[in-house]
Design a protein around this nucleic acid. Sequence first.
DNA 1: AAAATCTAGTTTCATATGGAACCAAGTACG
DNA 2: CGTACTTGGTTCCATATGAAACTAGATTTT
Lengths: 172, 172
Amino acid sequence: MSDRPVRRKPGQPTASQANSLVGAVLTLDVIRFGYRIGYLAQLFTGPLYRELSERHDIGRQEWVVLFCSAYFEKLTAQEIGQMSGRAKANVSRAVNKLVRMGLLKREPNLADARSTQISLTRKGRAVFDQTLKPFVEREAEMLSVLTVDEVSQLDILLAKLTNRADRWDAPY
Amino acid sequence: MSDRPVRRKPGQPTASQANSLVGAVLTLDVIRFGYRIGYLAQLFTGPLYRELSERHDIGRQEWVVLFCSAYFEKLTAQEIGQMSGRAKANVSRAVNKLVRMGLLKREPNLADARSTQISLTRKGRAVFDQTLKPFVEREAEMLSVLTVDEVSQLDILLAKLTNRADRWDAPY
DNA sequence: AAAATCTAGTTTCATATGGAACCAAGTACG
DNA sequence: CGTACTTGGTTCCATATGAAACTAGATTTT
């Protein structure tokens, strides 16, 4: 690791310098996996969330709720919390905001008056479809350094890591 | 939540059939990779950060700084920011806190008086070694569902994803 | 069926965080 | 040199967040 000041042309981004430092950390022999997974996750979502909040005033929490709602016709706030691992206060706030924005609608839950059935409005579906695209594209970019074979290897490995029988992945 | 209509790939478990709602989401066909990587990252660090802040009053930002400092003898705050992807305000606060706690020390940077050389104190080293253990152990648990072969596959894949020539992973 | 218990969701509070303003030191250029 | 501009780091501010208190509806117990 260099201990001298960074030297570069004015106006140029510090990307190359940053990258070498990142690379140095990422080849360490301790917590290689945990560190790199976290690094990837942050890098993947970072620019996406930024754009999302600038363009649509939708934050991380709101996006998660939107995502879940888009794939299950009707959900309660609790179910969203369970499947996303978010604290229920955040889910509550996110749902309320999305309802105010007209992207979600609530219907009374006949089975239990404490909770409500949450579902996407037509507008919510449209916004979701629109906002999903950058995620899909960025994922493709992220994976673009892998061969088709490697992608399916990764798919299998991720499936094993996230879909396990023990309780390693218990909610904490 | 038994027979709710669900949009999913044919043959995949429904929310109710999966052992958890998380499982149901994780088998979706969109952003499979991004979502699961983020999910894994969150799950890996979640309990660790909680314990860290309870036991040592060290938060996420402080831990990152500690980790970087433990692997490079001398660093500037800027370098830490670059290699961890954290905002400089957070690095600044974290460094200051760790200095107050006696875990880091600052030495003047002879080459540039604006920045200082940051390094671990003996105490900082001791605390780091102690706090690293749970991370190592939890990583081992996380990987325990993989065979030795699969772990090295994953290692290669992660290396490719994080150590690339293009600018996908440029700081944002 | 009244009392105690539990659960879904909301609100409150204290802290964490990112972005921009800011300050001091370094560099470029006349 | 002197002025303009860049850069490392800190501080300020507005927002995001998690944990716990709280409310109202549901369930259990006797």
